[in-house]
């Protein structure tokens, strides 16, 4: 497993289970793992709202040649670097996370409302999201 190899290279990281938790240099790290280690597929980006601990982004990368997976995690607050120039598929995930979590990916210029209408307020998957639709109170 490569995971400990990575731990030696990225000084500023922590390994929890199968996850490599980094603190900064997201695009640089992803680019390095992709080009130098052949992790050529980004399976998906998962966002988790940990409330006061910020929003965690989990990048699941896969190598079709070696059939290995590596999981990178970073906790962000409102904005982070975009990796849509490195992976085409990241464009899809970043758009979704922008819409549902309100995270601004710097360098991605196609961010806009995806699932929710243009006029929608708030980001539905955030834990502090309030449902304002009065139709939800139909039984009161």
């Amino acid at each position: 497993m490569r995971i400990h190899e990575f731990a030696n290279i990225f000084k500023d990281c922590e390994i929890v289970g199968e996850k490599i938790i980094i603190k900064s240099n997201l695009a640089k790290t992803i680019n390095f793992i992709k080009n130098d280690y052949g992790f050529n597929m980004l399976k998906d980006i998962t966002a988790v709202d940990n409330q006061e601990n910020g929003i965690e982004l989990i990048y699941r990368m896969y190598s079709t040649e070696n059939e290995e997976e590596v999981v990178i995690s970073i906790t962000v607050n409102g904005e982070t670097e975009s990796i849509s120039k490195i992976f085409d598929s990241a464009m899809a995930d970043e758009k979704e996370i922008y819409d549902l979590f309100g995270i601004n990916f710097i360098g991605n210029d196609e961010l806009e409302r995806l699932y929710m209408p243009e006029s929608w307020e708030g980001n539905p998957l955030r834990k502090d999201y309030e449902e304002k639709d009065e139709r939800l109170n139909w039984n009161e």
Binding site: D44, T46, S89, A92, L125
Partner: peptide
């Protein structure tokens, strides 16, 4: 669940 996320194949095809 605290958070549940789906990854689906078609979404990436549409994106591409």
């Amino acid at each position: 669940p605290y958070r549940l996320k789906w990854r689906t194949g078609s979404y990436y095809s549409v994106n591409l």
